[in-house]
């Protein structure tokens, strides 16, 4: 993986700026303050009031907040990755190297999700406070962390793909944030709305669609992993399948942008579509 030249270059470019340590420091400091406030608020300053159930609530709020932050932060780092290359006029040269479109995209995805992964790792010690007071079990923390890493990866992948397909960074940013909004706001509000509808007259259709939509919401899936809501046996499977399929659907369009010649492998595709993206 580290042999990917794009990844190495992106690490050099991104991590040597002042922005990277500032973002990490600011994030960890904010999360630390928030954790302290949540714990303090829970016990009202009386340490003997600390109970495992309250500590679990702190973990729940913290992890959901963390998911929300990284989900909205990821497009900021990935939405301009490929369109930026085009705008800086470095893409043409990159495409004349023997690097395959997959390794270019893979390098971009890993590089643009690296900082958010670092944020998650840097905030892990805060969870030790939760362990200190009991409540959350290590398996739960590991499951939440892995799911958060997967969500970052999938958001970064789709954002990089939008960035490859859209000709301008402005458009790719809009499309990436629209995707994240769908993942969090649309699936959340519509899913919960359908479920609340289903409570009054027994409506299996609304309940089932509500549940399906909520399965596509990372906050809800995470809550299910923490047993805060009922999400079925493997709540993350529907989520993972759906977004992987979305990424697979976008892949041919990315290849069309990067190597229009590959269109010839698709039966019926005409040479007229082989326009220069660079």
């Amino acid at each position: 993986m580290m042999r990917n030249p794009i990844l190495l270059k992106e690490f050099r470019q991104r991590m040597r700026t002042v922005r990277a340590p500032m973002v990490v420091t600011g994030y960890v400091a904010s999360m630390a303050v928030l954790t302290f406030l949540l714990l303090y608020e829970n016990v009202q300053g009386q340490l003997y009031l600390i109970q495992p159930s309250r500590s679990e609530q702190v973990f729940f709020v913290l992890s959901l907040l963390q998911m929300l932050v990284v989900a909205f932060l990821t497009p900021a780092f990935s939405a301009g990755s490929m369109s930026g290359e085009r705008e800086r006029r470095t893409l043409a040269v990159l495409l004349t190297t023997p690097l395959s479109p997959f390794s270019i995209l893979f390098g971009k995805v890993l590089a643009s999700s690296a900082l958010q992964c670092l944020l998650l790792m840097a905030s892990l010690p805060l969870y030790s406070l939760v362990f200190l007071f009991g409540g959350a079990v290590p398996q739960e923390v590991v499951a939440v962390l892995l799911f958060q890493l997967f969500t970052i990866f999938i958001v970064a992948t789709i954002s990089v793909m939008w960035s490859t397909i859209a000709l301008r960074s402005g458009w790719s940013t809009v499309l990436s944030y629209a995707t994240v909004s769908f993942m969090i706001l649309v699936t959340g509000t519509v899913g919960l709305g359908l479920q609340s509808l289903a409570k009054n007259p027994v409506d299996g259709f609304a309940a089932s669609w509500g549940h399906t939509l909520l399965s596509l919401n990372p906050l809800w899936v995470e809550a299910a992993l923490e047993n805060a809501v009922h999400g079925g046996t493997l709540p993350w499977v529907t989520f993972a399948l759906f977004y992987v399929i979305i990424a697979l659907i976008l892949t041919p369009f990315c290849l069309w942008r990067l190597r229009p010649q590959w269109l010839r492998r698709i039966p019926g595709a005409t040479r007229m579509n082989e326009r220069n993206y660079q």
Binding site: K9, R12, R16, T90, V93, T97
Partner: peptide, 30 residues
């Protein structure tokens, strides 16, 4: 692609790499 070195008429560079790193990056690509 292995046989050619291509310089387009209107090219951009990675501003925030040093000259050494810039050349190393492209050598790694090949």
């Amino acid at each position: 692609r292995h046989s050619i070195g291509f310089m387009p008429d209107s090219f951009g560079v990675y501003d925030d790499l040093s000259v050494d790193e810039y050349l190393e990056f492209y050598a790694d690509c090949y």
